[in-house]
């Protein structure tokens, strides 16, 4: 088991190295001089310019810059934002909990609705419910979520006034320091009346928007995996033994049908983070996705570089973890190529 883990880990190493290289090269290919971004377009004295270049290490030979960059990364230094002069890692870790909170809620939403919908669709195969679920899942899967978000804001927030339009909390009614970074937890800890409810209201629409595509995928996979399992011999045996349909489906079939579903959840981490960029932009959700887009607009390339490095590393590690967990569950995979 440990050997398997180490081998998988070793396989990701070249990916990490390549990632460092690509993010490093990218910042040098981007049009515009980083020093200029920092000083503005009016220009400054040449001596000051040289000094700034020296401070930022830009007067070093290119290979030395790369080595410095890698050494920095290995020490947890992901660069410094040109705009705020904060460490990228610091900014990232403040914003990341907001993205995780949103992503977790979206995934939970997708699983809680998608799995039962898929199971019922499989059991009532060919019926109106099945057709409904399959039709809805094609639409959900094809949804341009940035438009879906605007549509929901238009209906739910503007016309019906049910939820707030943007942000994580009403800044006029509530204020408290962030403890965990997760608004749902912080709002309870703050002890302010109504804060938790307000946080939940802010979460509803972004959760639905980000969860729509995973929901469609999960409902579909659950349905087809359930159909496959339901035709297995052991399910027939369980039925023949006279077990109630609820036990057969809920206990015997569902457990095995969930394996592909769990895989697909692991594989969707990247999709979820990509979707978070759009969702956060639409709802002004202060997470890393919105921050990345703003970094481009502000031409804050170190932030972009560090942010992409961090997000990609997280995706690689999560995928590795999913893989290894599979190896633990299913020994056959350990020896596969």
């Amino acid at each position: 088991m440990i050997k398997y883990f180490l081998r998988r880990l070793a396989l990701t190493l070249p990916t990490f190295v390549a990632l460092m290289f690509v993010t490093f090269v990218m910042i040098r290919l981007v049009p515009g001089d980083p020093v200029e971004v920092r000083t503005g377009e009016r220009g400054i004295a040449p001596e000051r310019l040289a000094q700034l270049r020296h401070e930022m290490g830009l007067d070093q030979p290119i290979w030395k810059q790369f080595v410095d960059y890698v050494v920095g990364l290995l020490h947890g230094d992901f660069g410094t934002s040109l705009v705020t002069s904060e460490k990228v890692l610091t900014e990232f870790s403040v914003l990341f909990p907001a993205t995780i909170e949103l992503s977790l809620c979206a995934m939970l939403f997708a699983v809680l609705i998608g799995v039962p919908a898929g199971v019922i669709a499989a059991v009532k195969r060919g019926g109106p419910f099945d057709h409904g679920v399959m039709g809805a899942s094609v639409i959900g899967f094809s949804m341009p979520i940035f438009w879906w978000g605007l549509l929901l804001i238009m209906l739910v927030s503007e016309r019906w006034g049910l939820t707030p339009v943007s942000g994580r909390l009403d800044p006029i009614k509530f204020y408290f320091d962030s403890v965990t970074g997760f608004m749902l937890i912080d709002s309870i800890l703050s002890g302010q009346e109504g804060a938790f409810l307000d946080a939940v209201q802010h979460l509803i629409l972004p959760t639905i928007v980000l969860g729509t595509i995973p929901l469609a995928v999960i409902a579909r996979i659950t349905r087809s995996s359930m159909l496959e399992v339901l035709s297995e011999d052991y399910v027939r045996t369980a039925r023949a033994k006279g077990l109630s349909p609820f036990r057969v489906i809920g206990l015997h079939a569902l457990r095995n049908a969930m394996i592909p579903v769990v895989t697909s959840i692991g594989l969707q981490i990247g999709t979820l983070l990509a979707g978070a960029v759009l969702t956060e932009t639409i709802f002004s959700w202060p997470g890393v996705g919105k921050w990345l887009i703003e970094s481009i607009a502000r031409r804050d390339y170190p932030a972009l570089q560090g942010g992409i490095m961090l997000i990609s590393s997280i995706v690689i590690m999560v995928n590795l973890l999913v893989d290894v967990m599979y190896g633990a569950i299913n020994p056959r995979l350990r020896h596969a190529r």
Partner: peptide
């Protein structure tokens, strides 16, 4: 290819467009 997959799709698009 592993590297390309590791970066969330839209983020990678944004990166390429930024360059």
């Amino acid at each position: 290819m592993d590297l390309i997959i590791a970066v969330p799709s839209l983020v990678l698009c944004i990166l390429v467009v930024a360059v």
